[in-house]
């Protein structure tokens, strides 16, 4: 196995161009497990941990640009107020040790349908910044995943960062696992409300070949919600929303759960997430909050 350790981002891009087969490694919480379990034996590994730029984040024209190497622990501690959905999801990732090492860049690179960061990134309509020696491009997360553990990246590209708007409204995330911590999702759901644009974003994890959006559910609920009056949605509306989310999933039976249960759980989680998000006190509604919902 060849071990590449670039010192700078430019060097990393040059190395990736010269060794397109090189497997990038940051936290190693996916790559090392795969090597350990003998699922893959990469010929070349490129260590991205020394590259400072990847561990930085900042604001670019009102949008957060977060380096691919920022750990989940830092996301929770430093950005939890601006990205509450991603923070809730990050808190469900592995153990404290894994959260100290693991990164959203790595999650995107692995592109597992069960990746915990994907549903909140989908719901918030985030973008992935891909870089190579020939330039930089931004791909919406909603177009990034192409199949199980497959994505739109070229062989010569590396993930530089992801870009996402600070939450314009309440966000929620919920994940079913068969134990109370440190568990891979049986299925998961993320929700992001954008009251100013009157839009609702969704993300479904671990219930299809890729992370998915529930597009019909988004359109339905955006039209049903009482954005001005902030009256709580009716039980019937919540149920319909849940049904549409469940219908958007493409789950299978596997070692972690059955397809039928996944659909069932998604309906429950999406109803609950919407109710929690809608009931969020006004001062926590983020940038889009204009007036307090009725009854609170």
């Amino acid at each position: 196995m060849e071990f590449l350790q670039p010192a700078t981002w430019e060097e990393a891009l040059a190395m990736k161009a010269a060794h397109p087969e090189a497997v990038p490694i940051a936290g190693g919480t996916d790559v090392m497990v795969e090597i350990n379990l003998d699922h893959r034996r990469p010929e070349t590994v490129m260590d991205l941990t020394p590259i400072r730029e990847l561990t930085e984040w900042g604001t670019d024209d009102g949008v957060l640009r977060i380096g691919a190497g920022v750990s989940y622990t830092r996301l929770i501690d430093e950005l939890g107020d601006r990205l509450p959905g991603l923070a809730i999801a990050s808190r469900t990732v592995g153990s404290p040790q894994i959260r100290n090492r693991g990164t959203v860049g790595g999650n995107l690179g692995t592109a597992s349908p069960a990746g915990d960061a994907h549903p909140p990134l989908l719901a918030a309509d985030a973008e992935v910044e891909l870089a190579s020696t020939s330039g930089t491009r931004r791909v919406p997360v909603r177009e990034f995943f192409t199949g199980p553990k497959r994505h739109t990246m070229r062989q010569d590209e590396l993930i530089a960062a992801f870009l996402v708007e600070p939450a314009p409204g309440p966000q929620q995330f919920s994940k079913v696992g068969t134990r109370n911590a440190m568990v891979i999702a049986v299925c998961s759901f993320a929700l992001a409300l954008d009251p100013a644009r009157r839009r609702v974003g969704t993300g479904i994890g671990s219930a299809g070949p890729t992370p998915l959006r529930a597009v019909d559910a988004e359109a339905f609920i955006a039209g049903e919600l009482d954005w001005d009056g902030r009256r709580p949605p009716s039980d019937a509306t919540l149920s319909r929303f849940g049904e549409l989310v469940a219908a958007a999933a493409k789950p299978i039976d596997d070692v972690r759960g059955t397809a039928a249960y996944r659909r069932h759980a998604l309906a429950v989680m999406s109803r609950r997430c919407l109710a929690w998000a809608w009931a969020t006190p006004p001062h926590l509604w983020g940038g889009g909050a204009r007036s307090a919902p009725e009854g609170l």
């Binding site: 929770i76 501690d77 939890g80 509450p84 809730i88 808190r91 994940k175 696992g177 109370n180 911590a181």
Partner: peptide, 20 residues
Amino acid sequence: KGGAVGPADLTAMPGGVSNT
């Protein structure tokens, strides 16, 4: 911590920190 929004102690709930 980190602006978490949710009930005070998820760990006491079925599903734990997974916020179910």
